[in-house]
């Protein structure tokens, strides 16, 4: 679908991670790639609200199921259950504590068993080594247009590829991602994608 973006859409039957200020946007764009239901596991104690009026720019919030997990362990258990079940193709989880290798691996096995994709929204540096890819998404300034959604996507961990980065833009009218410019100042390789 996006030949110029290696690793996106996310490889199915795997668990991926995303960090950075634009992680929610990344998750919403992932949800927009498919038309099935989406389960979003959130910590129940969070004061931040996921705004459906903002989500509808990316996908129909009617597809969204929210699970308010009362604790970190419950969030992981719900995620594992949903990944293994396979009836929800995409499970998004907001992680609040560092994942250890055992927890990451369990999620990975559950995703493989259910054929589903998992995406963990992690605070910077709290991922697990078991993740298939880890992305860092940060919004960037686009001085010319106000409604721009320009952001910088970096793969900072990739089990079956190389770390790369792009600047991308979400287009509301076509419901598609545009790659604005390939990597300029990459932290990893500078191989031109596409």
């Amino acid at each position: 679908m996006y030949p110029s973006l290696s690793g996106f859409p996310l490889r199915p039957s795997r668990v991926h991670e995303v960090c950075g200020a634009g992680a929610t946007t990344f998750a919403a764009i992932c949800a927009a790639q498919d038309s099935g239901p989406v389960l979003w596991v959130r910590p129940a104690w969070s004061v931040e609200i996921l705004n459906p009026q903002g989500l509808c720019r990316f996908f129909d919030p009617a597809r969204l199921l929210l699970a308010q997990a009362p604790s970190h362990e419950d969030a992981l258990a719900v995620t594992e259950e949903a990944l293994r079940d396979g009836s929800v193709p995409l499970v998004i989880t907001e992680i609040t504590r560092p994942l250890d290798l055992r927890q990451g691996r369990r999620l990975q096995l559950a995703a493989k068993a259910g054929g589903t994709t998992g995406l963990c929204l992690i605070p910077e540096g709290m991922g697990s080594n078991a993740a298939e890819t880890r992305w860092r998404v940060s919004p960037c300034a686009a001085p010319l247009s106000m409604d721009s959604t320009r952001m910088r996507w970096e793969i900072i961990k990739n089990k079956s590829g190389t770390p790369e980065n792009w600047e991308v833009l979400w287009d509301d009218t076509t419901n598609r991602l545009h790659v604005v410019s390939p990597a300029r100042v990459g932290s990893g390789s500078s191989g031109a994608p596409g």
Partner: peptide
């Protein structure tokens, strides 16, 4: 497909409470 989701919601709901699975 919707049957599958109902079952999943029941299973998750037995852990975190059925009222904690919500939609907008």
């Amino acid at each position: 497909g919707s049957f599958g989701i109902d079952d999943l919601v029941t299973r998750i709901g037995s852990r975190i409470g059925l009222d904690n699975i919500q939609r907008y």
